[in-house]
């Protein structure tokens, strides 16, 4: 009866959340529970929400170019609050050369434009399990 729970967040001040919504729907249709919080979330708000919802993963969509500060901030805040069982992954307009830095700061994977929705589902199926479920 355990279900994977994923927070889909869209930080930053840039306009739309079309991509984040597509991912949310894809994940729902693959049988996961998605907590969707809408636009303009700060890293602090994202982490507080992830804790209250006790999710297995946070998927962050970033178009604004602020990925090099936002991702490490989220990872750091999780650590500061004593959370070590939430996977962070991301997607959006992120240049290839930034990806090694993001991964070394604790981001599990980055989906760049052109990634198919099947790839995202495959990633979740292979890497994210409900906590505690035997």
């Amino acid at each position: 009866m355990a279900k994977v729970r994923i927070l889909i967040a869209k930080p930053g001040l840039d306009g739309h959340d079309r991509g984040a919504k597509v991912i949310a729907r894809t994940l729902r249709d693959a049988g996961f529970e998605v907590i969707y919080t809408g636009l303009r979330q700060t890293p602090e708000a994202i982490v507080s929400t992830a804790i209250q919802e006790d999710v297995d993963a946070i998927g962050v969509s970033i178009l604004s170019g602020a990925h090099n500060t936002i991702f490490p901030k989220i990872v750091l805040l999780l650590k500061e609050r004593g959370v070590n069982d939430i996977i962070v992954f991301g997607g959006g307009v992120i240049p290839d050369e930034d990806i090694p830095f993001l991964k070394s700061s604790g981001v599990s994977t980055i989906f760049t434009p052109g990634t198919s929705t099947e790839d995202v589902v495959k990633f979740v199926n292979e890497n994210i399990k409900p906590k505690h479920a035997a």
Partner: peptide
């Protein structure tokens, strides 16, 4: 009812 998944959007 089809996938068993959900979008929980009240927090928006």
């Amino acid at each position: 009812p089809f996938s068993g998944g959900a979008i929980l959007g009240d927090r928006i």
